[in-house]
Amino acid sequence: MPARNATDVAAQNGAKQVKALLFDVFGTVVDWRGGISREAAAFGARNGIDRDWLAFADDWRGLYQPAMEQVRAGNRGFVRLDVLHRENLDQLFGKYGITGISEEETDHLNRAWHRLRPWEDVLPGLHRLHRQYVLGTLSNGNIALMVNMARNSGLPWDAVLGAEVTRSYKPMPETYLGSCEALGLRPDQCMLVAAHNGDLQAARDCGMKTAYINRPYEYGPHQKVDFEATSDWEFIANDMVELADQIGCP
């Protein structure tokens, strides 16, 4: 993926007026598949359970969108992602024939999402971007999840925004617009950084600027989309360090 001229991009798209970079987190900032499969394998070892833990991670993530859709469709009131993750985990235990697990062990596994680690380019890139911009999350993850993840890995967020703050789940417009409003900024003063073209399109539709980060291995061999940018996003980069280069952050 070729680098783009940061000066040209800024001139063409008004990127110089951007005050805040808001980040999708799962897949863009952290490696959920690797992290969840490792935590699940450790859970299995502690409890004498042998399963395909990569498949378990994929299946747990596979229940993510359907669970949120029940909220988006108005079939249930807003609940935090921790609650949806726990409901999905209980469902997975049934599918995988896992029984007799204590509440303490189950809760610890559910909070594996709080302990996900960033891709290796993330911290160097974010620290450079932080010199010039307000940084925050624009994630479907709830506040406690995002805060714990940041403290575990040193993610330099200035604000934790997204689903719980706006009581909505992406790609609902209010998730994007409410996050910008919470910072006292117009949508065009905020840029979404994400590895998912659909997320970026929803942000652009709300008036936000956009930056694509390529994560072609997020879903391992099961990835079917987001191998490359599919639109003319303001910035297109292979990783966070390259994004900092393109924007001109020292």
Rank of each mutant, 00 (worst) to 15 (best):
N142H: 07
L126S: 10
E174V: 11
P173I: 02
A6H: 11
R4V: 05
K16W: 08
D199Q: 00
E69N: 14
G125H: 08
R86C: 03
D82P: 05
E105W: 01
R46D: 00
L116R: 14
Y64P: 04
E234G: 10
T137G: 08
G62E: 02
D8F: 12
A3Q: 10
C190N: 04
A182L: 03
R117A: 15
G136N: 05
F23H: 06
Y219T: 07
E39A: 15
N75I: 05
C190M: 04
T230F: 06
E234W: 08
I98N: 01
R4N: 08
V134T: 15
A20M: 00
I213G: 12
A10V: 04
M191Y: 07
E120W: 12
G27I: 00
T28E: 06
P118Q: 05
A6Q: 06
K209R: 15
T106S: 15
H114D: 13
L21E: 04
A3R: 15
G27K: 07
D199F: 04
D121M: 10
L92C: 07
L123P: 02
E242A: 13
Q17A: 14
N75Q: 15
K209C: 06
L138Y: 06
E242L: 13
R46V: 01
G34I: 03
Y176M: 05
Q246A: 14
Y169E: 03
E39W: 08
G162I: 02
A202N: 10
R76T: 09
G27F: 03
L129Q: 00
D82M: 11
M172A: 15
C249H: 10
E228G: 11
C190F: 02
I101Q: 10
A57E: 05
V165R: 13
P118W: 06
L92D: 04
L135Y: 09
P171F: 07
A15E: 02
R80Q: 13
F23W: 11
Y219Q: 13
I36E: 00
L81D: 04
D232K: 14
T175A: 15
A40K: 11
V9P: 01
T137Y: 08
N88S: 15
G77R: 04
K224R: 15
A3G: 13
E103A: 15
R72W: 01
H196F: 14
V225Q: 12
A211V: 01
N110D: 03
L155C: 02
D24F: 09
N142F: 01
I236F: 05
Y133Q: 03
Q12W: 03
R72H: 03
L192P: 04
G207M: 01
G178L: 00
V9S: 14
E69C: 04
M208T: 11
V160R: 08
W53K: 12
E69G: 09
I36Y: 03
T137M: 06
P2T: 13
C206L: 02
G220C: 06
P156Q: 01
D121C: 10
A40I: 09
V193H: 00
P216C: 07
N238C: 10
D245C: 08
K209T: 05
D239S: 11
R128A: 12
R80V: 06
E164C: 07
A202M: 04
Q17G: 05
A144W: 07
G97R: 11
C180F: 00
E242M: 12
T210K: 13
G27E: 01
P2W: 08
A202R: 01
E218N: 13
V71Y: 00
T7K: 15
